[in-house]
Each structure stands twice: as C-alpha cells, then as structure tokens.
Computed example of a mutant assay.
Amino acid sequence: MKVLLVITSLSVGGAERLVTSLADEYVANGHEVILVRFHGDEEVRPSDSRVRLVNLEMQRSPLGVLTAMVRLRFLIRSFRADVINSHLVHANILIRVLRLVTPMSRLVNSMHNSNEEGLGRMLAYRLTDHLADVCTNVSQEAVEAFERQGALKPGRMLAIHNGIDTESFVFDSDERQRVRTELGLAENTSLLLAVGRLSDAKDYPNLLRAFARLEACPMVPQLVIVGDGPLRHDLEALADSHGIKDRVRFLGVRHDVPELMSACDLFVLSSAWEGFGLVVAEAMSCRRPVVATDCGGVREVVGSAGFLVPPKDSAALGEAIERALGLSNERREKLGAAARERVVERYSLQATAERYLAVYGNDNHISKE
C-alpha cells in the first residue's frame, strides 16, 4: 500500500511523535510511505530512512499557502497514494479543500484532541466534512466532544487510541542515575516531570500553582518541564512570582524523554484539555506513578493505575502530588508495574498501526451519508 501522511509540522508533540512512529511501523511492514509537513524543522522524525520526508515550506501569507497547496497537489498526483491520512486541524482542513480540485483515492482525517480552540475551526470541519471518507480521533470522549460541538454528523468518526513504542519507553536504572547526575539531584530529592508544549492546553499555570503548595514536604521536590512554546516567558515569570524559580527547570525541547521519565519519581499532567494524553501512556510504560487531570481520554489511559484530579484545580492537583510522593516504595513499585502492564496490553504502537491500516483499506467502514 502507498500511504501519504500529511501533518502541519514536525514539532515536538504527541501527534507528531505518533505520526513518525506510524511511518516507521508502516515501512517495516512493507508499505511505501511519504510523510509531508507544511512547514518547520524536523524536531521529530522517523527513524527508518525508507520514509520519504517532504517539507512544503509554506509561508504565512495567501501566496505562501497557495504555493504550498500547488506543491502538495503535484506530489499527490505523482505519488498516486492508495490512502492519504492527514493529522491536526490545519492539515485536515487544507487537504479537504485541495480535494475539490485533486483526485484522491481515499482521504482519512485524524484529529488529536477534544477541543480545537475555537468555534471557527469546528465550523470549518462541519462545512468540509463531506470531503473526507473517514475521520478518527484519539479517544471515545474526543469523538463525542466533536459530535456535541457539531463538527460532524454522529457516526462519522472512529476512536483510534494513540500507540507508543513500549520497547523504547521502558524504565532504565542506569539512565535514571545518569540524568539525575546531569541535573545535580541528591539521591533523596524527588523529581517531578511534565512534558508537553508550553501552550494554553497544557495549563502549566495550574501545575506551577500546585507545585508552590508543596513547601511543607519533608524534602522539597524539584520540577522539570520539557517542551517549548509561546508561553515560556510568562511561565518563567509565574514561577518567579510564586517563589519557586529555583526549584523549577524549563529544559526546552529534549530528545531523551524516555530517559527523563526513568529519572523522575512522579509524572504530572496538568492539562485543561487533551485528546488522549500520549505522554501519560509513555510515563506509565516507564513504570512511573502518574498524577493527571481528568480530561479528554486521560481517564481511559490511566484507569486505576494512577491519580486523577479535576482540571483547573491546583489545590486538588497539589494534594494528589503529595499523596503520590508519600507512597511507600512497595506501593510505588506495584503501581508502576500495573501502569506498564495496562499500556502494553492496550496501547502498543503495533495495535494502533493495525487499526489505522484497517481503516485505510476498508472503503465501507463509515458511510458518508
């Protein structure tokens, strides 16, 4: 099968990591894959050199968008893909518009959230819904959220959970020690880790306010935040205003996330909204205790193998962090083992790739009526 994957960019994010991993999985199983992005550098990329990467180098202007669309149209016509699978809102809408003037055998649009941050985007989805053959989202909750917001008719979207490489995301005691030494942490200092783009969706102010409540802990923990984004300056200023600047480190983009997860004692997700919560599954695969906000599909991921709190409630988040840090070593080990077992059984990359491939090849999977 010839598969054309289209995504807005290859910045560091859950959707981008999933798409590059799917590309690797597809070519490993004998499919021909081109991965197209509209703009930006390759902050993440497939590991298999057989995946062909194309950057449309789209500029933020009407002429820049038109030029990129012409390039993409030429690529589609020359590659003759059996299926085109686009990911994230901008790629989804643009590829639908392009289908008005470009023949496509099968078009699958994949969303990765329950909230697209604006009525305009949901309206754009609704008006162009008929141009897609199938839509997917990363959790049943996210599917239902799209239906409630009128982005598409009920029954037009499937839930396909994100998958992770459970052989890469595994606890490593040697890497734990290496990273903790790099960070200058004492052996008995607890380390909290958060991973994700510094944007409104991740609600890092919620995390910083919760973290500021932990002064009463016998050993004051440290917090590391991995990722970058438009809110970095504001978040650094907020940490300073709460008097925790010396205990919070913003590491920016890192490419050793599994190792950082091994180094932490607790993984925290403070999001206001999510689609699936890929980083939560990755941390669980590394046998890490997790405290997360109950948003999007996160409850489906965590189950009983972690702590869930309401979104936008820093008091509840802080209390859950304290409870998790107070676990005995025995309880911590049992919780970590249960977390990994849950992820391996439910959210392996292979299972996710097989589900996507089944959708790619099934012309009658969802009616367009």
Rank of each mutant, 00 (worst) to 15 (best):
V83A: 06
I84T: 07
S86P: 02
H87T: 04
H87W: 13
H87N: 10
H87L: 06
L88Y: 05
L88M: 14
L88D: 00
L88N: 08
V89H: 04
V89K: 06
V89W: 05
H90V: 12
H90A: 09
H90G: 07
N92W: 06
N92C: 04
N92S: 10
I93T: 10
I93D: 10
I93A: 06
L94K: 02
V97R: 06
V97H: 07
V97S: 09
L98V: 12
L98N: 05
L98C: 06
R99L: 14
R99H: 09
R99I: 14
R99F: 10
L100C: 13
V101C: 11
V101D: 05
V101K: 03
T102I: 12
P103M: 13
P103H: 11
P103I: 14
S105M: 07
R106I: 10
R106D: 03
R106T: 07
R106G: 05
L107V: 10
V108G: 01
V108N: 01
N109I: 15
N109G: 04
N109P: 00
S110H: 10
S110V: 13
M111G: 04
H112W: 15
H112Q: 14
N113F: 07
N113H: 09
N113W: 09
N113M: 14
S114P: 02
S114Q: 13
S114L: 06
S114K: 07
N115K: 07
N115W: 13
N115P: 03
N115H: 11
N115Y: 13
E116A: 06
E116I: 15
E116F: 09
E116Q: 10
E117Y: 08
E117T: 10
E117D: 13
E117P: 04
G118K: 02
G120Q: 10
G120E: 15
G120I: 15
M122G: 03
M122I: 15
L123T: 14
L123H: 12
A124Y: 02
A124N: 05
A124I: 04
Y125Q: 13
Y125I: 02
R126M: 09
R126H: 14
R126A: 13
L127P: 00
L127W: 15
D129N: 12
H130I: 10
H130V: 12
H130T: 02
A132G: 07
A132N: 02
D133F: 00
V134A: 03
V134I: 14
C135G: 00
C135T: 01
C135I: 01
N137K: 02
N137D: 14
V138Y: 02
Q140K: 02
Q140S: 06
V143R: 02
E144T: 05
A145K: 02
A145G: 00
F146C: 04
F146L: 12
F146Y: 15
E147K: 08
